[in-house]
Design a protein around this nucleic acid. Structure first.
Lengths: 203, 203
DNA sequence: ATTTCGAAAATGGTCTGACCACTAATCGAA
DNA sequence: TTCGATTAGTGGTCAGACCATTTTCGAAAT
């Protein structure tokens, strides 16, 4: 490494990798150079390269496949998120906080959609009742409909965390009701109904 | 390692370390066993131990001091912000998206506080006008007052992102106005005022 | 010419042992 | 007792080896 400062090698590697990704405009699913290639190109030992890669992996930014390579990761909930959560939960202890944030994010999404006259509810209406996880799939669509990808990403992340600590039990009927309220544009009642879905758990 | 499943060694090590921390009831500032000790105790190579430690370090959960050891430290969400941002921003193309999320999070915080009859505004009122970054410090306090640490962390994360792309210019006077509205419990106007702070930029 | 299958190459996963750099504890001399 | 140098302990880094898995590719069979 051109270890100019006293920064650790693996930190430098981290920066180099980030830079590489930006320059090459790599996207999710694209493959990174092999560990041995990176080792040569960045002039660092393979051990240091791996330390950097393991760190980014735990953050959920890359995915490594034995015998294949290292790939920028398409987001998959509960992969390494589980490990992450066991540590972070040391701080954010209460399950309630997690659920509350998830709830609030969803509420924001609903509020924003309801405030939009142009919103086409039909995007959500169809198919939905073949899902194994109605809640997640429903809000996945709602967040997509709203269109803010960062908000979606944050919600997705939080949802991933929640699933590691909270085996949920969904009641299909309640979501039929929620959808009905939305389709009838009874937005206030829909918001109340959404809140009621969380009331039991958040305490 | 008792590598029963196909889980990677460094992930097992991660779990073991977490378990160790819980069992020993280690607190912030306490020292972890040395890498060589962990290597023996967990029956894994030092390289694998280090991969695990580097990962937790990047998360900001531990701190390593050359020649001294590895220590637990208070979780600092900003630690990996810079790295994370460059990855997340790959997908978040528009600055507007970023600002919108920041705004929405703050709005949620205000709404929740305003809805709380018990909320003691005086926690926020004081000192504030000596700050270099009024907006950040104000909402830092507001989020702290609300008390959901996860929400605070997310907001902090997003705020960190924003600062990497948006050199802000704050107008002190506007925040005096905002605080006045809050202290007078003119909540709707306060919300409008908060929104107006973003209107120019979000487009 | 096409298909099939196995060897070889590429890649990640892990370990060992070495050496350096820094820190703190130790011990001996003033 | 005090001060300073030695020493032991610890993280930082490296080189090289071997294994497990996946892909590649060419030779053999069809």
């Amino acid at each position: 490494m051109t270890n100019q400062s006293k920064m650790k090698v693996y930190q430098e590697v981290l920066n180099q990798i980030r830079q590489f990704i930006e320059e090459q405009e790599l996207k999710d699913g694209d493959r990174l150079p092999s560990e041995r290639e990176l080792s040569e190109q960045l002039n660092a030992s393979r051990a240091s390269i791996r330390e950097a890669l393991r760190a980014i992996e735990l953050l959920g930014l890359i995915e490594t496949r034995h015998g294949e390579g290292t790939f920028l990761r398409t987001y998959k909930p509960y992969h390494s998120v589980e490990l992450l959560s066991t540590f972070v939960l040391r701080e954010v202890k209460t399950k309630g906080e997690l659920l509350e944030v998830k709830f609030l994010l969803e509420q924001v999404c609903l509020n924003q959609l309801f405030a939009d006259e142009q919103w086409d509810y039909s995007q959500v209406e169809d198919i939905l009742f073949e899902s194994n996880d109605i809640h997640t799939d429903l809000f996945l669509r709602l967040f997509e409909a709203y269109g803010n990808r960062l908000l979606l990403k944050i919600w997705h992340l939080v949802t991933g965390f929640v699933e590691t600590v909270d085996p949920k039990e969904v009641n299909q009927v309640q979501y039929e009701e929620l959808l009905k309220l939305i389709s009838q544009r009874q937005y206030n009642q829909a918001l109340d109904h959404h809140a009621s879905l969380y009331e039991k758990q958040c305490s």
